[in-house]
């Protein structure tokens, strides 16, 4: 009975080879941009092609990128977390508070990570259990978390972190390679595997493309989203440890506005802000592009605020240009 379809037609797995698709991908375009920026920079400033200054340049993006990986998954799943910078502030404040009460480095790490996780869980409860839109929830928790830091610290600051705590933000693993870049690389690999090589990652894509369809396919949508918020909180905790260690002090305004830079990095990395598509390697390249642009302009004595013009133009430009081009081509084809 099964053999009713006698001449079943063969459907190939793939229409184009993987290398063909890779060549036409967003990531390739972005990598080209990165190389161009790198080449321009090395011509523009003689100080650019120096291992130590390049190593310094990585601080421009490592902490943001750690969060950006988790944020990429969250955005692919169709949610967003704007409270990440405030989680850094709260986690850093908690660590500073603990230092005043004699906590050592291991306790600080625990506290930073725990506060991050708790903040992530807080957002997750509002979004997945109460079913509220994440953009509003995290605008609210963004004010709340940083607000708590302000209540605790006012216009003061916590200092006096233990000497060995400085290793995370200031130490080197080997030669010019900082501890932060090592953590960045490790997290990048973990998230690459998680998103691209596991069932969990597949669920993230399915939810982002069609949350109802994913639910109807037996995916536990709310559970996956809950975990994603936890992960984003946890990564903010890691970033808080690195940033606090690097700065050696905590003010309530720490990492102010960083959430927007993180989102910019994710979107620049080719993640669709509406959810459903994107990749970790894209975000890695975007991190380098943003770091290189900032560093290169810094060498040319361009002030930080003007660099933000470039970042803003880059963000809109990389999304707008392909669309303008498509419209142009469409117009030419149909006179």
């Amino acid at each position: 009975m099964t053999q009713t379809n006698i001449n079943t037609r063969h459907i190939p797995d793939r229409l184009h080879s993987r290398s063909y698709r890779a060549l036409r991908s967003w990531e390739t375009l972005l990598l080209t941009v990165a190389i161009v920026v790198f080449v321009i920079n090395s011509f523009a400033s003689p100080y650019f092609l120096n291992a130590w200054s390049l190593s310094d340049a990585t601080f421009n993006f490592t902490e943001k990128a750690m969060i950006a990986f988790a944020m990429a998954l969250l955005i692919i799943a169709g949610e967003i977390d704007l409270s990440v910078a405030s989680i850094i502030a709260l986690a850093s404040t908690a660590m500073g508070f603990a230092v005043q009460h004699g906590a050592g480095t291991p306790e600080l790490i625990m506290i930073g990570l725990t506060v991050g996780l708790l903040c992530g869980a807080f957002n997750a409860v509002f979004v997945t259990i109460l079913g509220l839109p994440s953009i509003v929830v995290t605008i609210g928790s963004m004010s709340l978390f940083r607000g708590i830091s302000f209540i605790i610290l006012g216009d003061g600051a916590f200092r006096g972190y233990p000497a060995d705590f400085a290793w995370f933000g200031q130490g080197y693993i080997y030669w010019v390679f900082t501890v932060e870049i090592a953590i960045f690389a490790l997290i990048a690999v973990i998230y690459f595997v998680l998103l691209h090589k596991t069932n969990f990652g597949r669920a993230v894509y399915a939810i982002g493309n069609n949350p109802t369809g994913a639910l109807f396919s037996g995916i536990r949508v709310q559970r996956v989203k809950f975990i994603l918020f936890l992960l984003t909180g946890l990564m903010s905790g890691v970033a808080a440890i690195c940033l606090t260690s690097r700065l050696g002090s905590t003010r309530p305004s720490i990492a102010l506005g960083m959430e927007l830079e993180v989102v910019t990095m994710v979107v620049l990395g080719g993640v669709n802000i509406l959810g459903g598509s994107g990749s970790i390697h894209g975000v890695v390249i975007a991190a380098f592009v943003m770091g290189l642009v900032t560093f290169g302009l810094g060498l040319l004595n361009v002030p930080g605020i003007v660099m933000s013009i470039f970042i803003g133009l880059l963000l809109i430009g990389v999304i707008a240009l392909p669309r303008v081009w498509a419209m142009f081509v469409a117009k030419r084809n149909t006179p």
Binding site: G140, S141, M142, S143, L144, F145, R146, G147, I148, F150, I151, L153, G154, D155, P252
Partner: peptide, 8 residues
């Protein structure tokens, strides 16, 4: 300094 937390 409470303002931010309250509005949040």
């Amino acid at each position: 300094f409470w303002q931010l937390a309250i509005s949040g």
